[in-house]
Design a protein around this nucleic acid. Structure first.
Length: 616
RNA sequence: GGCUCCGUAGCUUAAUGGAUAGAGCAUCUGACUACGGAUCAGAAGGUUAGAGGUUCGAGUCCUCUCGGAGUCACCA
C-alpha cells in the first residue's frame, strides 16, 4: 500500500506548496473510486477548500496536476463534483502482481515479538456445547488467526468451568438414576450422556418442588410471605431458589456432594473425574469438527481459590477496603459504577476474585501484555469492573485487556431456553449443515464422481463453510438472529459462494499446469478492463483490511471483504474470457490475476477458519 | 430507576464523517453449441425509529423522545 502513502504525502506537499497550509499526510483521505467514474483511487479535497479559498473543483484540479507531475504511477486524473479521481498506470499493476502473486504471506505482517492471549469457549462441564458456544468459538479462533497474521504470537487458552453445583447435579443424578450406565453402554456421545443426567436432575427437582408446594408447610409459607395480589404460581416461581436451598432433599444432596468435593473425598473426586472425562471426550470431538485448537487449558478447579493474595495486596495499596463484617470491597462510584464485593466475610472467593487471580497467573505463565476475553456481552459489567480493578492494582498488563463482547444468538422465536428445549445443540447443527450440503450436491449429481472419503471431506468443508461464514459475517457486537434455514443456504452471500469462486480459479490453475501456459508475458497487456481494475484494487486493499480487522478484533471485516472479492471475481469470470482471451498477453494477465484472487481468498477465508475445497 | 448496547428494504445485513445508503434471501424477468449455472444481468423494494444540533458534507458525532435487549447477587 505504499502507493496510497505516496499519494497522501504528495497531496500534503501540494497543499503546502499551493496554499501554504500544513496538512498531515496520514489525514488525507484516499478512497477507492466508485465504478461509475474513471480511475481507481479518489482524493477527498473538501477539507482543503477553506484553506485554499477556492471552489472544490479548482482545488481538485490543482492538486491533481501536482500529483500527475510528482507521482509516476498516476496516469491521468479527472474531477467530478469536487472529487479528484486518479487513474493508475498499468505498469504499476503488473509490478504489483509480479511481486505478490505466489507470495503466501501477502498481507501478513512480520512478527513483532509480542504475545497476545486469547481466551475463548469457556464451557461448563455439565452439558454439551450449543449454538452460543459456536459463535464464541468461531470468533475466538478467527481473532486468534487474524492477530497471528498481524504479527503477534498468539496463545489460545480455554477456561473450563469444571466444578460447582452444576456438575454436582449431573453427578448426583447419574449416581441415583444411572444404574452404572456409560456412554458406551447407552450408545450416546459422551458429553450428551452427561448432559442428559443434568436434564434428568432438573426434571426430578421440578417434580419434587411441585409435590412440595402441595404440603401444609409450603402452603403456610405462601400464606405468610406472599405479596398482596401475588398468585400462588407467581410466588412459587420466585421462591424456587430459596426452596432449593432450604427445603429440597435433592438440593441438600447436591450441596452435600459439593462439600465432599471440596473436602477432597476420594469417591466423589473419582466420580467427578470420570464424568468430566466423558464431557471432555465429547468436547474434543466438537472442537475437531469446528477445526479449532487450544494451546493451554485452565481448569476452574485449579484456579477457584486464586486471587486472595491480590485482595490482600489491594488492601495494603488502599485499592480495597474492609467492612466491619470482614468482607472486602472496591468502591468504583467515582467511575460511575457500584461498590463491589471482592472477598466474602468468611474469606472465600467470589467470581471476580478468581478472575483477578487467573489474570495474574496467566501473565506469569506467558508474559502476554495483551489479553482478549471472548465472552458474551451479558458480562460487560463484570469485565468493566475486572479491568478497572486490575488497572487500579497497576498490573503490568492492565492496559492491554480487551473484552471481545459479542451479542447473544437468538432464534427467530426468541432467546434459547434450556427449560423450553429450544437450545440448538452444536453437534446437531454441524450434522444438519452437512446433511444439507449433501442433499444439494446430490441434486446436482456432482457427488457421484467422488469416493466416500472425498465426499465426506468435501461436504464437511462446504457445510462448515456455510455455517462459519453465516456466523462470522455479522459484526460481533451485534445481537444475532439465527435462522437455521438460512444458515445452511449455499447460494448468495454465503461461504460456498466464495468457495465456488475458488474452485473456478482452481480449475483454471490445473489447466495452466497441464498446458504449461507462460504467465510472464502479461506485462505487455495495458488495456485493463473495469472488472480487472476492481479485482486489482481489492487485492491491493487486503493488507489494510487485515490490519483493520486485527485492530478492531473484528472477523466480519474479513468475511465481508472475501465476499466482495468473490463477487467481483464471479462478475469478471462472466464478462471476460480467460483462456479464450483476445491476446496471449491478456490471457496471461488474467490467469495471474485469477491466481492472486485465489490465493487471497484462501488466505482470507483461512483467517475465518474456513477451508477451500479443490472441487465441489 | 442507574449504567451499557442496539434500531438501516418484508427478512438477514454492509457502509475508517465523503459521490445516487451497498449486498443477500424472498418476489418477478432474463442469460451458456465459450474456462463449472452453488454463477451472471435486470425489475421492484429505503423519510437509515422520530425531532433538533454540529459540519462544506451525518446512517455514522452531540442532545432529547420513542422502541428493544443486557446488566445492576457475598451465582459463575
Amino acid at each position: 500500500m505504499q502507493l496510497i502513502e505516496s499519494i497522501q504525502s504528495q497531496v500534503s506537499k501540494a497543499v503546502e506548496a499551493l496554499y501554504q497550509s500544513t496538512v498531515p499526510s496520514e489525514s488525507v483521505l484516499v478512497n477507492t473510486t466508485p465504478p461509475e467514474f474513471a480511475g481507481q483511487y479518489s482524493v477527498v479535497v473538501f477539507p482543503f477548500v477553506k484553506l485554499a479559498g477556492k471552489a472544490p473543483d479548482a482545488v481538485a484540479n490543482e492538486i491533481g496536476a501536482h500529483l500527475l507531475a510528482q507521482v509516476s504511477e498516476i496516469n491521468a486524473f479527472n474531477v467530478v463534483k469536487g472529487f479528484l479521481n486518479l487513474e493508475i498506470d498499468s505498469a504499476y499493476w503488473h509490478a504489483f502482481l509480479q511481486k505478490n502473486v505466489g507470495n503466501a504471506h501477502y498481507g501478513r505482517q512480520p512478527n513483532r515479538r509480542e504475545k497476545v492471549m486469547v481466551e475463548y469457549s469457556s464451557p461448563n462441564t455439565n452439558k454439551p456445547l450449543h449454538l452460543g458456544h459456536i459463535r464464541n468459538i468461531l470468533l475466538g479462533w478467527s481473532c486468534s488467526q487474524i492477530l497471528e497474521a498481524a504479527g503477534y504470537d498468539v496463545v489460545k487458552v480455554q477456561v473450563i468451568n469444571d466444578r460447582g453445583v452444576a456438575i454436582c447435579k449431573s453427578m448426583l443424578s447419574w449416581l441415583k438414576f444411572g444404574n452404572g450406565a456409560t456412554p458406551e453402554s447407552a450408545g450416546i456421545k459422551s458429553d450428551h450422556f452427561v448432559g442428559d443426567y443434568y436434564v434428568l436432575f432438573e426434571q426430578k427437582s421440578k417434580a419434587e418442588y411441585e409435590a412440595w408446594q402441595q404440603t401444609a408447610a409450603a402452603q403456610a409459607i405462601f400464606a405468610e410471605k406472599h405479596k398482596s395480589g401475588q398468585s400462588e404460581k407467581e410466588f412459587f416461581k420466585d421462591y424456587k431458589n430459596k426452596w432449593f436451598n432450604d427445603h429440597s432433599t435433592l438440593g441438600a444432596e447436591v450441596r452435600d456432594m459439593l462439600l465432599r468435593w471440596e473436602a477432597h473425598d476420594p469417591d466423589t473426586l473419582d466420580l467427578w473425574r470420570r464424568m468430566n472425562g466423558w464431557v471432555y471426550q465429547g468436547f474434543d470431538q466438537t472442537y475437531a469438527d469446528l477445526g479449532v485448537t487450544f494451546d493451554k487449558l485452565y481448569f476452574e478447579s485449579d484456579t477457584y481459590l486464586l486471587g486472595k493474595d491480590i485482595v490482600e495486596e489491594g488492601l495494603a495499596k488502599g485499592v480495597f477496603y474492609r467492612q466491619d463484617d470482614g468482607s472486602v470491597w472496591v468502591d468504583l462510584t467515582d467511575v460511575g459504577q457500584d461498590q463491589k464485593v471482592v472477598l466474602r466475610a468468611d474469606g472465600t472467593s467470589v467470581y471476580i476474585t478468581q478472575d483477578l487471580g487467573t489474570a495474574r497467573m496467566r501473565y506469569e505463565d506467558f508474559g502476554a501484555k495483551r489479553m482478549v476475553y471472548v465472552v458474551a456481552d451479558e458480562q460487560n459489567y463484570h469485565f468493566t469492573v475486572l479491568f478497572e480493578v486490575l488497572k487500579r492494582l497497576q498490573e503490568p498488563y492492565a492496559d492491554g485487556l480487551y473484552h471481545l463482547a459479542y451479542g447473544l444468538v437468538e432464534l427467530p422465536t426468541g432467546r434459547m431456553k434450556t427449560r423450553e428445549g429450544t437450545v440448538v445443540d452444536a453437534d446437531d447443527l454441524i450434522a444438519e449443515v452437512k446433511r444439507i450440503a449433501r442433499e444439494q450436491a446430490a441434486e446436482r449429481g456432482e457427488i457421484d464422481a467422488f469416493t466416500p472419503e472425498e465426499q465426506e471431506q468435501m461436504l464437511h468443508t462446504i457445510g462448515m463453510g456455510a455455517l462459519k461464514f453465516f456466523i462470522l459475517k455479522v459484526h460481533p457486537k451485534r445481537k444475532m438472529i439465527f435462522n437455521p434455514e438460512e444458515s445452511v443456504d449455499l447460494q448468495g452471500q454465503t461461504g460456498p459462494y466464495i468457495q465456488y469462486s475458488y474452485v473456478r480459479i482452481n480449475g483454471l490453475m490445473k489447466r495452466v499446469q497441464k498446458e504449461g501456459v507462460d504467465l510472464t508475458i502479461s506485462t505487455q497487456y495495458s488495456d485493463i478492463q473495469p472488472q480487472e481494475h476492481e479485482l486489482l484494487v481489492a487485492l491491493h486493499e487486503f493488507p489494510t483490511v487485515l490490519q483493520n480487522a486485527a485492530r478492531e478484533y473484528d472477523p466480519s471485516l474479513i468475511a465481508n471483504y472475501c465476499y466482495n472479492l468473490a463477487k467481483s471475481y464471479h462478475r469478471f469470470w462472466h464478462d471476460l474470457s480467460v483462456f479464450n482471451a483476445h491476446s496471449p498477453e491478456a490471457k496471461a494477465f488474467r490467469l495471474q490475476l485469477s491466481k492472486g484472487v485465489g490465493e487471497v481468498l484462501k488466505s482470507g477465508m483461512g483467517l475465518l477458519g474456513i477451508d477451500m475445497p479443490e472441487r465441489m
